[in-house]
Computed example of a mutant assay.
Amino acid sequence: MEIPAQDAAHMARAVELAGRGHGTTSPNPVVGCVVLDAAGHVVGEGFHAYAGGPHAEVVALAQAGERARGGTAYVTLEPCDHTGRTGPCSQALLAAGVARVVIAVPDPNPKAAGGAARLRAHGVAVTSGVRAAEAERVNEEWLTYARLGRSHVTWKFAATLDGRSAAEDGTSQWITSPEARADVHRLRAAADAIVAGIGTVLADDPHLTARPAPAATPGAGAGGAGSPGADGRKPLRVVVDARARTPQGARVLDDRAPTLVAIAEDTGTELKADLLRLPSDGHGLDLEALLKELATREVVSVFLEGGPTLAGEFLRRGLVDRVVAYVAPALLGSGRAALGAAGVGTIGAIHRLTFDEISLIGPDVRLIARPATQPGREQ
């Protein structure tokens, strides 16, 4: 189907608006909306800014007022058809007298879906699938969460040009520049949870918090900076620690942010922390069970920073949805690799990625990539 240039252009703007909600809407999706009057002029724009706040359609329709009657609304996600913390957007569009609604992506949430059908039933012309790929990408965290029932995972690592994340003696501070580290904190602040393994906790004793960072770097695919997140949330800290070896005095257990320690079901411990008991196998804790449990706690997005071993396990199990790599113009020649065993025994089993972005962050290069095939995520 050939998409009219006007539809493509207005939906592109709606996708741009949706991106402004990154890091502040969880557990809701990011959504953008553009409203035209009957003559085809833009009269309203909006995006979903925070959970519990007005949806994108409501914001755009309020700006448009009576000029929306007989016009067209462009929405990146199918208008909801249920009453939650706010009313159904399908009803808001009908009340505004909009004659046509253009949708990028259908809503996979059965509780909210049905907006397109309701609009059609009341005589509104509905077009779907316009700029679907871009709308999928801007909303990928929530779509993974809604479709797969688990948190979306971004694996971040920093390495030298020859792929080393630490020197032979274990030192790693600092491989990358202050600019790159500030960018990492911005991405941390936009996530719902920051995950690390017990190896990282024992070796580095990290805080795993999102600390203040400079203004957002264009093109990173996530919103606001700072600590806590732009909506006042502090990302949950999660330690994957099958045998409960986290020291009671570890920084990750301080009061700077909430912390969850994931341990094996059969582990006995006197550790005073919020514990999550999970099944385990020969490779460690069931990481998919971890992500599903986090999803029940409304953790839509996970920022994985947990060393080469844990990253390898997430990758081996097909649980990495996006990779953000910071590569420094430096060489070590030996030392710890950025990625451990990831289930690849032969070149035919290699984990293929596709690049989304390659950009300079200070003197370093930031690479954003994702698995070449992501079944269940983009439909």
Rank of each mutant, 00 (worst) to 15 (best):
G199Q: 04
P258D: 11
A191M: 01
A213Q: 01
A196Q: 08
P206T: 11
I263V: 15
R186G: 15
V252D: 10
K234D: 02
D254Y: 14
A262Y: 13
P279R: 14
D255V: 06
T246G: 14
A242T: 03
P212I: 02
A215N: 01
R256H: 05
A191N: 03
P212S: 04
D274P: 04
H185V: 05
A189R: 12
D266E: 13
L253W: 09
R245F: 04
V201R: 09
A250Y: 04
P235D: 10
R186P: 04
P212T: 02
A264S: 15
P279C: 08
A220Y: 01
D204M: 06
P235Y: 06
P258F: 03
A262N: 14
L276H: 09
L202Q: 11
K272T: 09
A216W: 01
V184C: 00
L236W: 11
D274K: 13
A196L: 08
L187W: 00
P247G: 13
A215H: 09
D204Q: 07
G199R: 10
T246N: 14
A257P: 03
T259K: 07
T217F: 10
T200Y: 08
A242K: 06
R277N: 06
I263S: 12
R211H: 12
G232D: 08
G224K: 00
A210P: 02
A220S: 01
K272G: 00
R233D: 06
R237Y: 09
D281Q: 07
G197K: 04
G219Q: 06
D241T: 02
A190K: 02
A203W: 07
R233S: 13
A210C: 04
L236E: 07
L236D: 07
L278V: 13
L260P: 13
G199C: 07
A191P: 02
T259F: 05
A222L: 04
A193F: 08
A213F: 01
P212F: 04
R245L: 15
R277V: 05
A262K: 14
D255I: 00
V184F: 01
D183E: 10
A191G: 03
R277M: 06
L276E: 11
T209M: 08
A189S: 15
R256P: 00
D274A: 14
P279E: 14
D192W: 06
A230L: 05
A242V: 06
I198Y: 03
D204G: 05
R256S: 13
A216K: 01
G197L: 05
A262S: 15
T217C: 00
V240I: 15
S227E: 03
L260F: 15
G224A: 08
V184W: 01
A222K: 00
G197Q: 06
R256K: 05
I263E: 12
D205A: 03
D192K: 09
P228R: 05
D255M: 04
R251Y: 05
L253Q: 10
V238M: 10
R211Q: 09
V195W: 12
K272E: 14
R233F: 02
L260G: 12
D281E: 06
P206I: 12
E270M: 02
R243F: 02
P206Y: 11
R233G: 08
L276G: 10
G223W: 01
D255K: 13
